[in-house]
């Protein structure tokens, strides 16, 4: 099955059928923004959303998660990851590509993280070609959007009044089998291409990725980092809202009366002071300038394919624009890049 076209008003029926098999998470309104939250029907979702506050990374790497529980006598218990099939409905191309980078960190390396691998396996991804390009978006320049090239089970593209549904996996075939519509024609794929072109014309931000690793490594002493360090509040919003930031702390917590406890991991951020601190107070990124350089350098420069051979994308950054949107100090990595290029 190459693809099918379904009328927009049949989406409710499809979501209802899917909700029998999957716990569904989709884009929902929250005030003036959107979030990914659990939904039971298509009405609860807003598929014309721009970007959610937090990316779907939270479903695969929760803010805090138990690595194992222990008793002080040494007995250890591993967490059981539930088997409930989940489905993320309407994930944009940027956030989908971000999962491919997280895969390089947590599933394709030498030491896969079982909880992550299981969550990825049990979660179906129904992606959405993005037509709602926001002011901060630049996925097109990063090669990660507005429509994904793969990594989805199903890809939806809004063709005005109807959706083109394409399958990208066996699970996708099963989902398409639940939908009611007609087989897609060449004309429908042409309309998809037009929708993508229309979306592309909306981008206000573009970045130039030529020789980008080298550019950052050549500019480690550029005075821009000092200036950004002065501005930076080191609040960590950029990292927390980033779809590809993966860093975490590992800690122990004892339960009362101290005969048992848990070892758990919790989101951490390179822009925070303690992140690179070692014994005796040594700190390899004490200055804010070094920390913001790490965040931006890792995202645009040395963090993508040059860090993970398994990752086929270009940079760690997928161009979702969240870090720009939420930065209280107005730090904008696309502007930093322009300045480094001398533009």
């Amino acid at each position: 099955m190459r693809g099918m076209v379904v009328p927009k008003d049949s989406l409710g029926e499809l979501v209802s059928k899917l909700s029998d098999r999957y716990k569904i998470f989709g884009p929902k309104r929250k005030g003036t923004e959107w979030i990914f939250g659990e939904v039971e029907s298509a009405d609860e979702m807003d598929l014309r959303y721009s970007t959610t506050i937090l990316p779907p990374r939270k479903f695969f790497l929760p803010t805090s998660e138990r690595l194992f529980s222990f008793r002080m006598d040494g007995r250890v218990e591993e967490p059981e990851e539930p088997d409930i099939p989940a489905l993320i409905f309407g994930i944009h191309s940027c956030d989908l590509n971000a999962l491919l980078l997280l895969d390089a960190v947590f599933s394709s390396g030498q030491f896969p993280l079982p909880s992550y691998v299981k969550r990825r396996e049990r979660t179906a991804l129904v992606a959405l070609t993005c037509t709602e390009v926001g002011d901060h978006c630049f996925c097109e320049s990063m090669g990660t959007g507005p429509s994904p090239a793969g990594g989805y089970d199903v890809l939806l593209t809004d063709l005005e009044g109807e959706y083109l549904m394409e399958s990208g996996s066996r699970r996708g075939d099963e989902i398409l089998a639940l939908a009611r519509g007609r087989e897609a024609s060449k004309g429908d794929f042409d309309r998809k291409a037009e929708a993508i072109e229309r979306a592309k014309s909306k981008f206000k931000r573009r970045v130039d990725l030529r020789d980008i690793d080298e550019l950052f490594l050549k500019n480690l002493d550029n005075p821009i980092w000092e200036r950004l360090g002065e501005k930076d509040l080191a609040c960590g919003l950029c990292v927390n809202s980033c779809p590809t930031c993966f860093c975490f702390d590992v800690r122990d917590k004892l339960d009362f009366p101290m005969d048992s406890g848990v070892r758990y991991k919790e989101w951490d951020a390179c822009v925070l002071l303690e992140f690179s601190q070692v014994a005796l107070g040594g700190n390899f990124r004490r200055d804010r300038s070094a920390r913001i350089r790490q965040f931006i350098g890792h995202n645009l420069g040395w963090g993508g394919a040059s860090q993970f051979r398994e990752f086929r994308g270009k940079a760690k950054c997928v161009g979702c624009g969240r870090c720009i949107r939420y930065c209280p100090a107005g730090i904008d990595l696309t502007e930093v890049l322009k300045e480094l290029r001398g533009a």
Binding site: Q110, L113, F275
Partner: peptide, 24 residues
């Protein structure tokens, strides 16, 4: 090299130096 390490398996991110993980 000494760096902060929380995982040892190139996941926690603390030991990164440019593209390198000191642990891996």
């Amino acid at each position: 090299l000494e760096r902060r390490m929380e995982c040892g398996v190139a996941q926690c991110g603390h030991c990164q130096i440019g593209p390198k993980f000191v642990c891996k």
